[in-house]
Design a binder for these strands. Structure first.
Length: 545
RNA sequence: GGCGACGUAGCUCAGUUGGUGAGAGCGCUCGACUCAUAAUCGAGAGGUCGACAGUUCGAAUCUGUCCGUCGCUACCA
């Protein structure tokens, strides 16, 4: 029974390269989850796109003397290349810069405005007259009134950690030009988040199977009291506001429009497929499920703000689950490309084969807590787990079949109990693994798949087909045929994790028909194997970290 | 400062609602095997579950305090 599954993935911000923490936190788990659901026959829409608006991009553009769209285009292209290189497969990967996205965003804005969930308010904000721009809090610097630190930011003092209001700063200055900013009144649209407290609480209470850190954090946010939130900015780089009440120089704030991207991308997918109403399948069918793959820093946007917008808009499905990951840390700290902590996705792919990198990251997914990773750790995972257990298993079986059975799967004699047992083990582990993936316990699911591979290694060591080849060729044939059939089940379970090497096996064993183990046809040619995964030579990688 | 988490074998991590002797992978030691990318398989050593106090017949698991690490703090996205 095919079920519509929306796999919604955080929109990467096109202001710089993304790093392995982002890959492990959102894109890779989403891809594994989506690949599994496609394989069991569900109707998957995995969507996301580059978030191309916002102040940081304009700042970077100014610094480089180029236009914001140059910056956005550069990193959008890099992201698309990242996905291709590491096998992240989308139904629709787009950007917030499309006309479709602007139209969908404006439509929801107008609807929420019409229903009274959006209103206008005035506030005072610093303005840099030299660059003619309003300054987001963090672009104002000055002296902290509490500790005297001279480089405190307008939102927070990095020295004493206190939360600040930019107007608290002594001797404020603009981070953009260094000039002294002036306070100006500015008018903006606000989302009346506080209107949704009760409905959000009720909805969150109805959620089952959510990760504790996600549900706890979300409920705590509501209990502290929801603040109405400005959803427009004084900026000329963003989606235009569909009413002209505020005058020029205002745009919709990226966090309001980025989450709408999940909907606009589904609509774009519909247009591409020539079925304008297709998006309703994921957004309005009550049987549809939606999973939002994000990092933990995005939790409130996906468990509070976006659901509030969906409730306010009406007639759209709320998230089934938001399996946010915690952080991948490098040397104890949160990965950050801008601060040079950890590897960018490109750097990771330059060092490791895509499947190897995918394996190592998936084995360390920070699903329960932050997980520490390093180049050495990735290399260890690859060499001592992926290569040793799985790569070697395929290699040893293919090699024996190729050498002793004329390069084709032998028919073999009747199977004995031990043969049937290993096949049953593989099958039951596949069932367990499927359940784990559906609960988004991907790290455990990968371990289960590796357990299946190990069971086949155990079987080979017990049956010793290399010895039987000399004493009992018929029995040897049976054992190797059984091992190959077992491998054919193991690789199904690994295929969402390892798409590149799985495709190689598809070329030999045929494509999996579903989430199940099937026998390989007798006589199927088995070529002389070449290693599926190269061992990582740490020394050759040099001292990069 | 406030909030949220985390601190379990050398390393990376699991441990449902508290209950027979605390787990996995890898590393390490020993043994088996030699088909295979010096890979595989088996056995074993190794932890007072951050510290202290408390609740309980009984706590890694609940409460409090402390120490350490990390993140968030709503205008970075």
């Amino acid at each position: 029974m095919s079920k519509p599954i929306l796999v919604a993935v955080a929109w990467p911000y096109a202001s710089g390269s993304r790093h392995l923490g982002h890959l492990a936190g959102a894109y890779l788990p989403a891809d594994i989850f989506a690949r599994y659901h496609r394989l069991i026959g569900d109707d998957v829409a995995m969507v996301s796109g580059s978030d191309v608006h916002g102040t940081p991009i304009t700042v970077r553009a100014d610094a480089e003397g180029v236009s914001p769209s140059d910056i956005a285009d550069r990193y959008h292209a890099e992201f698309v290349d990242n996905w291709k290189r590491c096998g992240i497969k989308w139904e629709c990967y787009t950007s917030t810069g499309t006309e479709n996205h602007a139209a969908v965003t404006q439509e929801m804005f107008l609807n929420l405005l019409d229903k009274g969930y959006i209103d206008k308010r005035c506030s005072e904000q610093f303005y840099d007259e030299e660059v003619s721009r309003f300054l987001p809090d963090r672009y104002v610097e000055g002296t902290c009134p509490y500790c005297g630190y001279t480089d405190a930011r307008g939102d927070q003092c990095d020295n004493c950690g206190r939360t600040l209001d930019p107007t608290d700063l002594i001797d404020p200055r603009s981070k953009m030009s260094g000039s002294i900013p002036v306070v100006r009144e500015t008018e903006h649209f606000y989302l009346r988040l506080s209107d949704f407290s009760d409905r959000l609480s009720e909805w969150l209470d109805s959620r089952v199977g959510w990760r504790p850190h996600v549900i706890n954090f979300s409920k705590a946010w509501i209990e502290e009291g929801l603040h109405d939130r400005a959803i427009t900015r004084d900026l000329d780089w963003g989606v235009e506001i569909p009413v002209d009440d505020l005058g020029p120089g205002k745009r919709i704030y990226v966090w309001f429009d980025a989450v709408i991207g999940y909907l606009s991308a589904a609509k774009e997918l519909s247009q591409r497929r020539g079925e304008p109403d297709l998006w309703r399948r994921w957004w309005q069918d009550p049987e549809a499920e939606s999973y939002y793959f994000i990092g933990k820093d995005n939790v409130p946007f996906h468990t509070i703000i976006w659901p509030a917008m969906l409730i306010g808009n009406g007639d759209l499905n709320l998230p089934t689950n938001v399996p946010a990951n915690q952080y991948v840390t490098f040397k104890g700290g949160k990965a950050s490309a801008s601060r040079g902590v950890g590897l960018t996705i490109d750097e990771g792919l330059d060092m490791f084969e895509p499947d190897s990198l995918r394996y190592a990251l998936a084995a360390s997914f920070p699903e329960q807590s932050d997980s520490e990773i390093s180049v050495e750790e990735i290399a260890r995972r690859v060499n001592e787990e992926l290569v040793a257990t799985w790569g070697n298993l395929v290699n040893r079986v293919f090699s024996m079949i190729h050498k002793n059975h004329n390069g084709a799967k032998p028919a073999g004699d009747e199977r004995r109990a031990e043969d049937l047992a290993v096949l049953a083990t593989v099958e039951s582990l596949l069932v367990r693994q499927g359940a784990q993936i559906e609960r988004v316990e991907l790290k455990a699911a990968l371990r289960t798949a590796m357990d299946a591979a190990q069971a086949v290694n155990v079987y080979l060591n017990a049956t010793e087909p290399w010895r039987l080849a000399k004493t009992d060729p018929g029995r040897s044939a049976t054992v190797l045929a059984t091992a190959l059939d077992a491998i054919n089940g193991v690789r199904v379970g690994l295929s969402p994790f390892l798409p590149f090497s799985s495709a190689k096996l598809d070329g030999i064993l045929g494509e999996p028909a579903g989430w199940e183990r099937v026998d390989v046809a007798a006589g199927t040619p088995i070529p002389k194997p070449s290693p599926m995964f190269p061992k990582v030579d740490l020394e050759a990688l040099g001292s990069i970290d």
